[in-house]
Design a protein around this nucleic acid. Structure first.
Lengths: 256, 256
DNA sequence: CGACTGATTGATACGTCTCAAGGATAGTGG
DNA sequence: CCACTATCCTTGAGACGTATCAATCAGTCG
């Protein structure tokens, strides 16, 4: 069943971005080790500044990208300016495409961005000729769907605090960070808000709240650390009750 | 890049559901016409009652399904019972799998359900052997991601009224229905709510509101009709302003 | 006809948004 | 190195939309 929110968009088929996470990175590595030394060589290093566009809705796919530093945001816009970010592509992640006619969303840099771009045609050729590559790309695409489902439940059914924690946990996981270890936060508050389906103010308030509760620390605007990953995991899994029984006001999180 | 459904991947990877829409149905038809007469024959007719489970989180994929009557809901659960439905599979839609390790969500019948189940192995074999099939399945999977993105912006950035209208529009579109034509609503209010990220009461209120505004009619609980599809399209695209300038209370939608 | 499930409606509570002000940070040019 | 400035972030007060709780209504099936 296909639902389209943006009914003015032609019902043609369109390209899909593949976005890899921690697991998929291994895949890329393996590919390179396997048969893709050639692919590694055709990669072109590119840089973008904050808010620069890698591609827009309607563009044709010419490159796939691997993020070296910074992050890419994939987003959709409503006519009145509301924006929803469908995914972030973080350092080490891969963002590729399946051939369809055109993009249905926009990719922009959330800050200083460094990527390696691979000509799409060459990647496609590899997919066509190598069953092992096909298989990995399939897994990869599947993983994307999984993440989308998690994102959906986050935006649809979790509270602001749960969303923010989930998000930070994802970043921590992606960085393989330990308790207290500083983790890069390569996007602005507005980007976080649009990813989480919140406003910038709410994100800010929640962060303050988490900080006060000693669940996280914020050395500066572009870094954070999770004090107790285990406890955060419980918070996300078991909901508000842990915050403090009988109260869920923003400021009422128990001091640890 | 040809992303294939690599169906002979070792069973260490987890399955992903493929869900087809109006467009994808054509694909299945074409496949059947092409080389898949055999597949059509191996289909097994199955029936399920409301809330029966086709598969659960953790199950292995043994069948893919095509819905004949009723609808399947694909959902995820939080520990405290909150639920988010990631997708509905409607009559004519297809629901297949790519393997990774295990299902990460549950598939249940939203009411009386009739499906045709295809043994996964046989579908897999077809994917492996036929490049054209691979390509279609890729497009198909890509379409899923597109829909998920639309669903995300809906749940993350649209108001209750916009979500309900979008949803009804999707159903109407899927059914190729004209203005005023009765369309089946093969799920309960709770299912709609969990899909839209709302409560059952809010869904009910919005429906009442739309009815009063003469945007839709509800002959009975399992059917609806859109009075003016064009107007609904505008509402979704341009937001609340059309409802009635200066007011957005539930009861304040202009009478047409 | 009851008994049951699901849908509607109402009153109120609560979480997040909106609007507005002030504070922090980073970049720029003298 | 220090104003100067633009941008981003934080905080507060109040409004608004949706959730919650509770009662009633409408179908359905024995």
């Amino acid at each position: 069943m296909s639902i389209a929110l943006s009914y003015n968009i032609p019902r043609s088929v369109s390209p899909v971005v593949l976005v890899g996470g921690k697991d998929e990175r291994a895949m890329i590595g393996e590919l390179a080790g396997d048969d893709l030394a050639a692919l590694a060589k055709i990669g072109i290093r590119m840089r973008f500044a904050r808010n620069e566009t890698l591609f827009s809705e309607g563009d044709e796919a010419t490159y796939s990208y691997r993020v070296v530093r910074g992050a890419i945001r994939l987003c959709k816009h409503l006519a009145d300016g509301r924006r929803q970010i469908a995914d972030f592509i973080l350092p080490g992640d891969y963002c590729g495409f399946l051939y369809l006619e055109q993009h249905r969303f926009t990719a922009e840099a959330t800050g200083d961005l460094e990527v390696i771009a691979y000509p799409q045609r060459q990647v496609e050729a590899l997919g066509e000729n190598m069953p092992s590559m096909r298989r990995r790309l399939t897994k990869f695409l599947s993983g994307r769907l999984m993440n989308m489902q998690d994102h959906l439940i986050m935006v649809g059914r979790q509270t602001a605090k749960e969303r923010v924690i989930s998000f930070l946990m994802r970043l921590a996981d992606n960085a393989d960070a330990a308790d207290g270890e500083a983790i890069g936060l390569p996007m602005k508050r507005q980007d976080m808000a649009d990813y989480l389906g919140l406003t910038i103010e709410t994100v800010s308030r929640v962060l303050t709240c988490l900080k006060r509760s000693r669940l996280i620390t914020l050395p500066n605007l572009h870094q954070f650390a999770i004090t107790d990953i285990e406890r955060c995991r419980d918070l996300v899994e078991w909901g508000e009750e842990i915050w403090r029984p009988g109260s869920s006001k923003m400021m009422d999180i128990a001091e640890a």
